[in-house]
Amino acid sequence: MAAEAQLKQAIEHHREGRLNAAEAAYRDVLAQNAGDFNALNLLGALLLQRGAFAEAETVLRRAVETNPASAEAQMRLGLANRGLGHAVRAEHCYRSSLKLDPKAADTHFNYGNLLSSLDRGDEALQAFLTCLKIEPRYAEAHVNLGDLLLRNQRAEPATAHYREAVALQPSLQPALLGLGLSARALGRTEEARQVLAKLLDLNPEHEEARKALAELG
Rank of each mutant, 00 (worst) to 15 (best):
R50A: 11
L84W: 06
P174T: 11
N152S: 12
G17M: 03
D28E: 11
E164K: 15
A10N: 01
R137K: 15
A52F: 04
F53S: 03
A197T: 13
L200D: 10
G146D: 15
H108S: 02
G51E: 08
N81V: 03
E23M: 04
E156C: 08
L47V: 05
D106G: 04
A141K: 13
K8I: 01
L125Q: 15
T189H: 14
L100G: 02
A141D: 14
L177M: 12
K8E: 13
G187C: 10
S182K: 02
A197Q: 14
E156W: 12
G180P: 05
D101F: 05
R15H: 08
L114K: 06
E16A: 11
E207R: 14
M1W: 07
K103P: 00
V143Q: 02
A124S: 13
P157M: 09
L19T: 05
L181F: 13
N81S: 14
P68N: 10
K211G: 00
S116D: 15
L115W: 15
L47A: 04
A25V: 04
D119S: 14
L79E: 12
A212E: 13
A87F: 06
S116F: 08
A2H: 13
E16L: 14
Q173D: 13
A212K: 07
G180N: 09
A25W: 00
A39V: 01
G83V: 00
Q169S: 15
Q49R: 10
R210P: 03
D101W: 05
L47P: 01
E205F: 02
L132A: 05
L48A: 04
A34P: 00
K133F: 05
A104H: 15
T159W: 10
A39K: 01
E215Q: 08
P102W: 08
L43Y: 03
E91Y: 11
L118T: 09
L132R: 12
A165Q: 06
N67Y: 03
